[in-house]
């Protein structure tokens, strides 16, 4: 669960950092650039723990038999859907029309899909396969975070 959460959050962070890094390269030396990237990763790590805390809280509220079967897959689906939605929303610079429209799309598609996982074994298997692979990337991101955290600590000693 942690790795999937990390994957979703870091994908967004890294995708957006692609815009910042070229601007940073123009004005920073290598040490500063490493530092700025490290801070961004540390914020992503904090965000990951925050979301994990939320998921754990939800996990406690959901009956154990439900949670055991599908909780990870629901979370995976949620993150993929939410990331896609966020990317779509931010394509619209005015953030007006699309925001509301896509929020409705999200609500009306996510819950039927999440609810239908048990009825649709192919989707469930596909999602489980995807979650497994994405979690590998998630662990890689968490490794980068650890390095980033170390750099931030050193820079602030």
């Amino acid at each position: 669960m942690l790795a999937i959460t990390a994957f979703a959050i870091h994908s967004w962070t890294i995708f957006n950092m692609l815009v910042d890094v070229p601007a940073w390269i123009l004005q920073m030396n290598l040490g500063e650039l490493t530092g700025a990237i490290s801070y961004s990763l540390v914020y992503a790590l904090a965000e990951t723990f925050l979301v994990m805390a939320g998921l754990l809280a939800i996990g406690f509220l959901i009956p154990a038999r439900v949670r055991k079967d599908n909780f990870l897959l629901w979370a995976t689906l949620f993150f993929l859907w939410a990331c896609g939605l966020a990317l779509a929303v931010f394509q619209d610079p005015t953030l007006t029309f699309r925001k509301q429209w896509l929020a409705r799309v999200f609500v009306f598609t996510y819950f039927p899909l999440a609810g239908g996982l048990s009825l649709w074994p192919a989707l469930k298997r596909g999602l489980a396969w995807l979650a497994e692979r994405l979690s590998l990337l998630g662990w890689l991101y968490l490794g980068l975070d650890a390095a980033g955290l170390l750099i931030v600590i050193i820079r602030n000693l």
């Binding site: 962070t13 957006n16 950092m17 910042d20 940073w24 920073m28 500063e32 530092g35 700025a36 990237i37 490290s38 801070y39 961004s40 914020y43 992503a44 931030v152 820079r155 602030n156 000693l157």
Partner: peptide, 16 residues
């Protein structure tokens, strides 16, 4: 991050 504010604030501006 006061000791490294000059760099930290630029990342803060992008992240937050």
């Amino acid at each position: 991050f006061w000791k490294d504010y000059g760099v930290a604030v630029r990342a803060e501006e992008a992240s937050l």
